[in-house]
């Protein structure tokens, strides 16, 4: 609720008031020309207030600390790094005419995801697989992969594992800039971050969120061959759909991951399906 109040204070007065009126939720969605929407327990609720361009510009200015110029490289990648675990996704119209690629009025919607204040993953889940070995966490979008990694990596730095953990936090969602006993490459490009980690931080384990691009396969294989364990996450609703993603399949075929953790949902509760490499697919 505190995060909700904080975010509502950053929105234009009309939208802020609607947020406070709605109360606690998981996501606030601002779509240009659409009605302000809230997501709660997997359902979307619409407010009577319509989001106009001024509301959206006001929100972008507030979320970027009046600094679209500083945050533009991140906005182009589809997000705005923000504090306190609040995640802001951006959808924008492509603007190839412009040298810098994007202007604030090209932004068509914002998705503000509010963090859960308490720990979500039951501790016993982490005892059901060797958490310091390479693993791939998968779930549909918004399924809890980032939360899983966020709660896993601090454990690895402590007893009994006491590993040197390096978090390549390319979107600032895993650590919010502070990794405790882990080394954090904050808002660093993933390929560049893994390269830097291997070269200068001698990590036992590297944590990476949302892999799946063509370029990911190369540096992940390199890091694995260099002797680091990689715990990564990727979108995929099941083992079958995961194997349909060519780049992820390539990594799986190369034997990069020891364990696969599928996060699902049943009766409103999260489920964790843990599969060792030999039994996967």
């Amino acid at each position: 609720m505190d995060e909700l109040r904080y975010v509502s204070g950053l929105l234009s007065p009309a939208l802020g008031a609607e947020c406070v009126k709605f109360g606690s939720c998981e996501e606030i969605r601002l779509r240009k020309g659409g009605r302000l929407a809230f997501c709660k327990n997997g359902r979307q609720y619409y407010s009577a207030v319509t989001v106009n361009e001024e509301d959206l510009i006001h929100a972008v200015r507030a979320f970027t600390r009046n600094s679209f110029h500083t945050y533009m490289p991140y906005v182009k990648k589809g997000f705005i790094p923000f504090e306190g675990g609040i995640r802001i996704g951006v959808a924008a119209r492509g603007n190839p005419e412009k040298d810098d690629g994007l202007s604030v009025s090209d932004i068509t919607s914002l998705n503000v995801r509010l963090p859960k204040s308490e720990k979500v993953v039951p501790l016993e889940i982490f005892s059901r697989f060797p958490p310091d070995k390479s693993a791939l966490v998968y779930s549909p979008p918004g399924g809890g992969k980032t939360t899983f990694l966020r709660e896993l990596f601090p454990l690895l730095t402590e007893e009994p594992y006491e590993k040197k953990v390096c978090v390549v936090d390319s979107r600032g969602e895993l650590t919010y800039g502070q990794g405790g006993n882990a080394d954090v490459l904050f808002l660093e490009d993933k390929a560049e971050g893994v390269f830097k980690a291997i070269r200068s931080l001698s990590p036992d384990v590297i944590i990476l969120d949302e892999i799946g691009l063509d370029e990911d396969t190369k540096y992940i294989t390199d890091a694995k061959n260099a002797g680091a364990e990689l715990i990564c996450s990727s979108h995929g609703s099941s083992a079958g759909t995961l194997m349909k993603r060519a780049n992820v399949k390539r990594l799986i075929d190369q034997g990069v991951f020891e364990t696969f953790i599928g996060i699902g949902e049943q009766n409103g509760r999260r489920t964790y399906e843990i599969t060792p490499k030999r039994d996967f697919v």
């Binding site: 510009i57 972008v60 970027t64 110029h69 500083t70 994007l102 604030v104």
Partner: peptide, 10 residues
């Protein structure tokens, strides 16, 4: 203009 435009424009 502050907070709305690119680095060069600003």
């Amino acid at each position: 203009m502050i907070g709305k435009v690119s680095r060069k424009e600003l």
